[in-house]
Each structure stands twice: as C-alpha cells, then as structure tokens.
C-alpha cells in the first residue's frame, strides 16, 4: 500500500507546482508584450539593466529565502514568496498572528496560523490594489496634467532622498566613502548618467570595501 504523504510533504508538492507555475506566468508577461507588439528589445539593453539590478537584488533575494523560510513555515513560504511584499507586510503579519495565537513558528499549529495569515493578507492586498487601480484609472487625465509633470520627473531624487536617510542614518560610517565617490564622479563626469546601472556594483564594492576595513579595525 502506498504510504500517505505527510501534511508538510503534500504542502511542498502543492507549493512547488504553484510556485513554478507562477514563475512561468511572470516570465510570460514580458514575453507576451514582446510577441504581441512584435517589439524585441536589444539583449544588450536588458543585460545592462539586469547587471545594475541583479547583484543587489539577487543577493537580497537569496538572503531573504534563508531568513524568512524558517519564520514563515512551509505553506507560508510558498505563498509569501509568490505574493511578495515580504519585509514590509507578510513577515510582520505572520509573526504577529503566531504571537497572538500563542503558537511557535515551525510547529504544526504555527504552520496553520502562518499560512492563514499570509493567505488572508495576500487576498486583502490584491483586492485593495485592484480596486485602487480601477479608481485611479478613472482620474488618469488629472495625473497626466502638465502641472503635475515636475513631480513625475523627480521620482528618483524623491525616492532616494528618503531611502538615503533610512540607510545612511543606520550606517553612516559605511556610507561616507561610496557617497563621496559617487557624487564626485557624477559632478565631474555628468555623461555617466546613462550608465548609472553600472555604477551600482561599483558603489557596492566601495561600500563593502570600506565596511570591511572599518569592521577589521573594530570601528563599526
């Protein structure tokens, strides 16, 4: 007689099927755009953009997997890593729910509560954003009015000004070197603006180098 799968094993099987299907669908989106509009961007352009994003976010992605999987449990992980917004939403939501229910992460009960919390949170988020987009698309002409254009021209300074405060204040000693080098570089060679993506790994190397030196001298 075939041995019955344990609950966890069955979640793993279900999770793998759903997650890999989700991956296929995510990749299908840009593919479908390319096919439908018969617009094939140059591989070089994609590679350049990819190189500026991947070193940071793939590293972060890998670390997130190792950090959050034990916290979220089996079902919670398969769902959480597909529905996203982990650090700012799903992880605190799951931890909070397990805490309130008085169950531990990693136990059978923790597994149930965590999965329920993440599933509920995902459903609520999806519904709110869908309704929001529906409403927003109605006021699109307002968003496109010329008065508002400077706002959209300044997304990046507004984003990084805010993020800068968060990260620099936490680690100002590590931040000084890459900040000085990067600001000097862009002041002296403004044409680098088109290659900002390639400057990202350079900035990261400088930051990590500076951090290593400070760390070795016990200055952090």
């Amino acid at each position: 007689m075939k041995q019955e799968l344990s609950y966890r094993d069955s979640v793993h099987r279900l999770g793998r099927v759903w997650m890999l299907s989700a991956l296929a669908m995510m990749i299908a989106v840009p593919s479908v755009i390319c096919i439908y509009y018969s617009a094939w961007p140059s591989a070089g352009g994609i590679l350049k953009g990819f190189l500026s994003v991947a070193p940071i976010f793939w590293t972060v992605g890998v670390i997130e997997v190792f950090t959050y999987v034990p916290m979220l449990g089996t079902g919670g992980s398969y769902l959480g890593f597909v529905t996203g917004n982990l650090a700012n939403l799903k992880v605190p939501c799951a931890l909070n729910s397990m805490d309130r229910a008085g169950v531990q992460a990693g136990t059978e009960e923790g597994e149930v509560i965590s999965t329920l919390a993440i599933a509920t949170s995902s459903i609520v988020t999806t519904v709110i954003i869908a309704l929001g987009v529906l409403l927003l698309s109605q006021i699109e002409p307002i968003l496109e009015s010329p008065v508002l254009q400077p706002a959209f021209e300044n997304i990046l300074p507004a984003l990084f000004g805010a993020l800068g405060v968060v990260f620099v204040s936490k680690n100002w000693k590590i931040a000084i070197a890459p900040l000085v080098v990067m600001i000097a570089l862009f002041l002296l060679v403004p044409s680098l603006a088109s290659a900002v993506g390639l400057m990202v790994p350079v900035g990261a190397l400088i930051a990590i180098g500076a951090a290593r030196i400070l760390y070795k001298r016990n200055l952090l």
């Binding site: 990260f167 890459p178 862009f186 990202v200 990590i208």
Partner: peptide
C-alpha cells in the same frame, strides 16, 4: 548587506547631481 544597499543608494544619489 547594508554595504550592498548603500552602494546602490549612493550610485543613485550621485546621479541626482549629474
């Protein structure tokens, strides 16, 4: 990890001055 993020942020903050 902080170093990685700071590298990215400093590159984009530098860009602001371009």
């Amino acid at each position: 990890l902080s170093g990685l993020f700071l590298g990215m942020i400093s590159a984009f903050l530098g860009l602001v001055f371009a």
